[in-house]
């Protein structure tokens, strides 16, 4: 048996936010997501949570589980000692229960021009990229946009203008891509007080990333590249 304590809140009703306890007859290999489905299907159909792939690739079910931001689908109930406390992602408005408003998260992602920019002629076949060049964007390209890093970031707790670890990791993904030729334009956009220099290098995002990516390290690399670009006179007006 497992005990789930699940955060419940519906801003539209006049109820106070609370934790609701559910008893679940778990099995050895039950994930936290399966536990939530057990509740929805057998105990309480009013519970709201997002999910889709149940295999750690769609990024729907990032939530705060027993003190850490994790994907519910990748978290075993047994690893949580059969006592599971679940809160929604932080720093975003709660819509209902475990569902938060991801608008600021995706807005920031869109701000950094998250697409390849190549102004040269398009080849008939593929752009050639050596395995070594491709290796530079390994990991960066594995981000599933789950929001665990966003929820864990103490800077975002007080400053929603900060672009956030997910958006800045994406910037490095394009800066480091041999096919992209907008590196200085990208660096100029983030070399600001709401971009890379707002990061206090607290490492929370690195610690919680369910895909073992390193947004903290990525921001560090962007800082070095931006400073170097400025010293070489290649980085012009920042923030635009």
């Amino acid at each position: 048996m497992a005990i789930f304590k699940v955060f419940r809140y519906n801003p539209e009703s006049y109820e106070i936010a609370r934790f609701q306890e559910y008893e679940i007859p778990d099995t050895e290999s039950m994930t936290v997501l399966e536990g939530l489905y057990y509740i929805l299907e057998n105990i309480d159909p009013t519970l709201a949570f997002r999910s889709s792939c149940r295999e750690g690739v769609c990024g729907s079910c990032a939530m705060h589980i027993n003190g850490e931001y994790r994907l519910a689908c990748e978290t075993q109930v047994s690893d949580m000692g059969h006592n599971v406390t679940i809160r929604p992602l932080a720093h975003m408005k709660i819509i209902r229960d475990l569902v938060v408003d991801l608008t600021p998260f995706f807005d920031n992602y869109e701000k950094i021009k998250p697409y390849l920019i190549n102004s040269g002629p398009v080849p008939d076949k593929e752009f050639k990229q050596s395995p070594k060049e491709r290796k530079r964007i390994d990991h960066h390209v594995d981000c599933i946009l789950c929001g665990a890093c966003y929820g864990s970031c103490p800077v975002l707790a007080t400053d929603s203008a900060y672009l956030g670890p997910h958006a800045l990791l994406k910037v490095l993904r394009f800066v480091d891509d041999s096919r992209d030729d907008a590196a200085y334009e990208r660096l100029a956009y983030v070399a600001t007080d709401y971009g890379i220099f707002r990061c206090h290098t607290i490492f929370n995002c690195q610690q919680v990333c369910p895909k073992d990516l390193d947004p903290t390290g990525a921001i560090g690399k962007l800082k070095m590249k931006a400073v170097k670009g400025k010293l070489l006179g290649k980085l012009k007006k920042t923030g635009t």
Binding site: E126, S130, E133, D177
Partner: peptide, 17 residues
């Protein structure tokens, strides 16, 4: 090729293809 031109990070052979 179109997906690749849009930035899709395919794995690569030694010749960059």
């Amino acid at each position: 090729y179109e997906l690749e031109h849009w930035g899709c990070p395919f794995s690569r052979f030694e010749d960059g293809s």
